[in-house]
């Protein structure tokens, strides 16, 4: 799936963590693109490396984590090897960030107006008066009632949902081309969550901002993303249009994951369950990382690591789809869909 002019290109990104017990590979050779104005969902369970990928793109990996190899390109320019100062400028101006806990993104000692104007003035040449007017405008845009009054209030005077709106305003301050949103709705109540998702979607459409939406919540992805990358044990299992991935999952892991989500209106005695649990980074099996839990694994899966294979509009890293094996895509899909689910009752781990 080569894009004509991708905004962000991630090429063979590897993120490592040196520890006392050896180097752990948290993100293991992943590649993806994000087009202008596109919302790419990155979904996975805890430890899949999704947040690490986001942090690597934006240059905010926490030491001792480091990009071991690979490239991150923003509009064709490499940004993974920039010095701190340059990267900081890009972070403010071209890439915005929204994190799970809005409280940690806001300085409790400054009024939100001051935080907004400061960011605006750092990256544009507006006067303080202009910047303040822009701050009020932004607050209104993210749906904060009475922005003229609230602009002078402090973060603790806002509720969780309102704080997240402020953080979104802060990320949008200077019209970035790309926003990295890491679990932006996870800390919020369900009814507030829906509001934030709707807001994010609307703003991105209006401003043409691309979003890399990192979350564990399939529901949020389904509703927000254009394309989705499913991560497993530091690798991309499957990437493709959101509807395709959710309704017509190709990778056995994605297929199992979808089946394990309870759904309203879907009456089943038992949920489909994937046996076992995601391997710890210290003992990722050889070959396909999913092979010990996979119902359809064969010899090759235990030996060789699958690369992303283009299937329909997306890509999937699964040997079932290897055309050299003489199997058609339809046959492979049928195999994945045919999970019996019997005799697989086992404890996770």
């Amino acid at each position: 799936m080569a894009m004509a002019n991708p905004l962000l290109q991630v090429r063979n990104l590897v993120v490592e963590f040196p520890t006392r017990r050896g180097t752990l590979t948290a993100v293991d050779d992943i590649s993806f693109d994000i087009a202008e104005g596109e919302v790419l969902g990155v979904v996975g369970e805890s430890g899949a490396g999704k947040s690490m990928t986001g942090a690597a793109v934006i240059g905010l990996l926490e030491p001792p984590g480091r990009i071991a190899s690979g490239e991150v390109l923003l509009e064709g320019r490499r940004i993974d090897n920039l010095p701190y100062e340059k990267m900081r400028r890009i972070r403010g101006k071209e890439i915005g960030a929204i994190f799970q806990d809005p409280l940690t993104s806001l300085n409790p000692l400054y009024s939100i107006g001051r935080q907004l104007t400061e960011t605006i003035m750092t990256h544009t040449d507006m006067t303080p008066t202009q910047a303040r007017a822009r701050a009020v405008e932004l607050l209104a845009e993210v749906g904060i009632p009475a922005p003229e009054r609230r602009v002078d209030q402090y973060p603790h005077q806002f509720s969780g949902g309102m704080r997240q709106r402020v953080v979104i305003a802060l990320a949008l301050c200077v019209n970035p081309r790309l926003i990295i949103a890491d679990e932006p709705t996870t800390a919020l109540d369900v009814s507030i969550q829906a509001q934030i998702i709707a807001l994010l979607k609307r703003l991105c459409r209006e401003h043409g901002t691309a979003v890399m939406l990192v979350t564990h919540d399939m529901g949020v992805i389904a509703e927000t993303a254009d394309r989705v990358a499913v991560m497993y044990a530091g690798r991309i299992a499957e990437i493709g249009p959101v509807r395709e991935v959710i309704k017509n999952a190709k990778h056995p892991y994605t297929h199992g994951l979808m089946g394990s989500i309870p759904a309203i209106g879907h009456d089943a005695d038992r949920l489909e369950q994937i046996p076992g649990s995601m391997p710890r980074l210290t003992d990722i099996p050889p070959g396909c990382a999913f092979n010990p839990r996979c119902l359809h694994a064969f010899d090759r899966c235990r030996r060789d690591r699958p690369e992303l294979i283009a299937v329909d509009d997306g890509q999937v890293s699964c040997w079932l789809y290897d055309t050299a094996a003489g199997r058609t895509t339809a046959e492979a899909k049928a195999i994945v869909a045919s999970r019996s689910g019997t005799a697989m009752e086992r404890a996770d781990g």
Partner: peptide
């Protein structure tokens, strides 16, 4: 809200509150 109760469409929000 749900027209037909047996459509496996709704994806549960696996969401955390506060």
């Amino acid at each position: 809200v749900l027209a037909a109760p047996a459509v496996p469409e709704g994806l549960g929000g696996s969401v955390h509150d506060g």
